[in-house]
Structures are given as structure tokens and as C-alpha cells.
Design a protein around this nucleic acid. Structure first.
Lengths: 243, 243
DNA sequence: GTTGCGCTTTGACCCAGATCAAAATGCGTG
DNA sequence: CACGCATTTTGATCTGGGTCAAAGCGCAAC
């Protein structure tokens, strides 16, 4: 039985994230334990160590996962865009600080019932496995960036990653270049890349000066020649795309 | 029906890794598509981009996953110890270079039949999801190390991670300190931590000089006071353990 | 034994990016 | 419009770890 998005309403956990092939009765079961939560840009969603009685799917906006050291150093370890999944079935306490990077809407499911549904519904677990494996691949690409790339290569890599992820969500690779929304502050970019915000700013200025990226307003990034940017990432031509 | 390790023979994919709760007929199906492969320390298992027609579980030894940039810089992105899983169901080409760090035995399963068995056997997929989520957590801890820690903190973190992982496999937290086998060369440690081998050597020398670690031969590491080492990681006291 | 080779250690020097500091820009609000 | 505040940019200086170079140290082979 093929899945029809029209049966799905707007919740991405059903038509995009978790349940791409599930059937009608499962959808209704999910509906009964689901609720929405919204956050403004900058607001915390949950702190590491807090009890987390839900799992969720991002509907709109961007959220970050980060880890902090007790002296204040922090490293972003996850960046969640619409349709990404938040939380771990079976885990009672949050393992990371989660912050709304932009205005954010989550579609939440109470954790215990969600776990029960997972047991009865292999599709959901299979879908979650796919998503987790994708996230693991992304984390490994990220590790290469953190461990071995120069500041310039890090910035170029982040911009190509954001361009690709937003493109897959619809935004666009227009005819005269690629453009996308940059939802991150300089500080968030630094947290993502293991740099300081000053270094991020300097490298962004360098790319602007060289015409490799153009900024329109403070949020819109235009990349006149995507290949030129890719050439700055240090990756080989295909951009490290995995199967 | 509870699972009894005695029914399992020696293959970790059955009694530890993938199939902790599977039933007799599934075990036999797995048996029919399984074979073993051995590698000597230093040998490549597979190169990124090669077709990979099997998935596998590590039986003995250590393997590394790494990513290379075309100019030769490399970053280790995975370290597989006994019972860890190698490969991705559904993926035809290897995404990483896999190398035997020490002598290595893999229990392999032909990929297509394994995928079919997964479809019929939810337990395997569920177990694989658990393992993948654990690996994702480990990758995120690793990202903090790569992005924000000093060379000294990186070395201390690596040693505590290895001590903990090997301890969970049986080796030792003896009465007079913790000790374990260090299966990595200085170069592999550097690849793991995003450092050069010279920096690794200098920091190891510093820890020896200060009595925080002792080396016995070239492979055995003794940690007289584990808390003293943990204090050097920059993590808070509980060592970043996740539920 | 000694030769050779891979791994490790140590030293001297340098530079990319951190740190510290100040100015510029943007933007919502009274 | 002017003010206040957050964010970003730019500059000057410092330093942790990289780079280059040369010994030291097993250990297997002869």
C-alpha cells in the first residue's frame, strides 16, 4: 500500500520524518499522542540532564544540539532543520542542550506511548534507523571538518552543507547562482565549526571581498558560483556525497 | 522467550551485537549467509567507494573508519572494537576507508540476504537502531573533543574512552589502578584526535613525566589514579556518561 | 653481534587562529 | 530622531600546536 501525503495533515513526523510508509490506523494512533510546541529564536528547548518525556519532529525553524564544558566552552553537535527528529526513544534524560536557533515549531509525541507504538510498528523503527544512519554520516563529515580543515575550509564547508540541506527542503538553486537563508549568527557558526566568532567574521569577510559569496540583508546568502565555493572546502569534486 | 548465549556459538553478531533477542530459526538463517574474514594489523579492509557486498561484526581486534581529503589529510571517524558493527544495510558502496588497526577478525554477512532477514526480523533492526544511536552519541562526544579541547585534554579523553570501552569488554580495572591495551600507534591516535603525531608524543611524555599514566612495554597503559586522568579531560566529574 | 626499518621522542622555529580591545553597524523602542 | 543594546567587523598581539629536522629505540632478519 503506497503512502499518500494527502492523508497526512501537516505533521512532518507522519509524511516525511518517521512514518513514510505507515498505514491509516497507525497515523490515528500517533495523532492521539501528539501536540505542538513553539519557541522563539534564542529560547532554550531543554537542558542537558533535564527529564525529557517527549520526542519530536521539527516542523518549521532550526534547532541546535550542543555540549558544554563546565568552563563555558561549547560545541554544537547537531543542527536540526524541518523534518529532523529530536530525542531518543528509551532515553529519559536529555543528553544535550537544545536551543531554538530561529523561531521553531516542534511536533511532539509523548515518549512512552511513542515507544509502545514503535514496538508494534516496524516501519517507524526502520525509518528512524535510516534517519539515524544519515545523521551518523553527517556527524562523521562534521568530524573531518572539525579535526582537519582550516578556518577557510570550515566556512566553505558549512555554507555548502546549509545550501544543500535547504535546497532539499525546497529553497533554491536559481538560474543565476544558489541562494539560501543563513539562520545562524556568527557565534552559532563558530560553535558549529569549533572556531571563534572573530575568525568566522574574518573568513566571511574574505569570501565577500573575493566575490565567492554575496550577502543580501543579514540573512540571505547568494553564491554566484557554487563550484567555486566547493573548491574551497578541500573536499573532492563530488562534495563527499554518500551513496 | 529469553535469549541464551549458549545457543549462539562465538559470533558476536548473534549474542552481542545485532540479535540479542532473536530466536532459533533466525539464528539458523543468519548462519547460512555468514562467513569469517581475518586481517593483519595495518591491512586495509575496504576503501571508500569500493562496492561493499557484506556487513559485518567485529569478533576480535580493532578497526578504524577514516575519511581522507585529497591532499592526504585524514581524520578517523570511527573506531570499532569487538561486537561493533561495520557497514550500512542498503548501502552499496563503502563510505569510509576501513583499516585493521590490530589483527582483526570479522564475522561477515552477505548484504542482500542480511537486508531481507532484517525486513522479516524486527529485533535485528531494533538492535541496530540502538547500536547506531550509541554510535551517534559517541560521535557527538568526539565532536566536542575535536572542536574545543586542548591537545592535553584530547589525549586524556582518548585514554579514558579506551579504558572504559575495553573495561566493558572485560579487561581490567584492577585494585591498584586501571590498565588496558593501547591498540593505537601515535599516528592513529593523532588521526583520532585531529592532532599531529609529534603533539601526541609530547603530551604522552608529559603525562608519563607527571605520573598520570605509566607505560608497560609499548602496548600496556596503566593509570594509577583514574580520577586524576579524568580531571584532565575538561569534562565534568561523571565523565559525560549518557543515560 | 650488526644492519635495517618502523616507530617514537625531542628540539627549534613558525604561523593560523585565539585573545583582547575598540569601533562600526543594525534595529527595535520611546 | 536619538538612544540603547546586540551583533558584527576590524585591528594588534600572543600562543598552542604545526612543521621541519634529527636523534633514539626496539626488534626482526641475517
Amino acid at each position: 500500500m503506497t503512502f499518500d501525503p494527502k492523508d497526512c495533515g501537516t505533521c512532518p513526523i507522519r509524511h516525511r520524518a518517521v512514518c513514510a510508509r505507515c498505514e491509516a490506523d497507525e497515523l490515528e494512533t500517533l495523532d492521539s499522542i501528539k501536540f505542538y510546541r513553539s519557541f522563539e529564536a534564542g529560547q532554550p528547548v531543554i537542558w542537558s540532564g533535564d527529564t525529557m518525556d517527549f520526542v519530536a519532529s521539527v516542523v518549521t525553524g532550526v534547532a541546535s544540539l550542543s555540549q558544554a564544558m563546565e568552563d563555558g566552552r561549547t560545541q554544537m553537535v547537531g543542527l536540526l532543520l524541518p523534518s529532523d527528529f529530536l530525542g531518543r526513544p528509551g532515553r529519559e534524560f536529555a543528553a544535550y542542550d537544545v536551543v531554538a536557533v530561529s523561531n521553531l515549531t516542534l511536533c511532539c509525541f509523548r515518549r512512552k506511548p511513542f515507544e509502545n507504538i514503535m514496538l508494534q510498528t516496524p516501519h517507524i523503527g526502520q525509518r528512524l534507523l535510516e534517519m539515524t544512519l544519515d545523521e551518523l554520516d553527517a556527524a562523521r563529515e562534521w568530524m573531518l571538518i572539525l579535526g582537519r580543515k582550516t578556518a577557510r575550509e570550515k566556512i566553505a564547508s558549512l555554507l555548502t552543507i546549509l545550501a544543500r540541506r535547504e535546497a532539499s527542503l525546497a529553497l533554491q538553486t536559481a538560474e543565476n547562482g544558489t541562494s539560501f537563508e543563513l539562520p545562524l549568527t556568527r557565534e552559532a557558526m563558530a560553535d558549529y565549526l569549533g572556531l571563534t566568532l572573530e575568525t568566522v567574521s574574518r573568513q566571511m569577510s574574505a569570501f565577500k571581498r573575493e566575490g565567492i559569496v554575496l550577502l543580501e540583508g543579514k540573512r540571505k546568502v547568494i553564491i554566484p558560483d557554487f563550484d567555486a565555493l566547493m573548491a574551497e572546502t578541500g573536499d573532492d569534486a563530488d562534495g563527499g556525497m554518500v551513496s
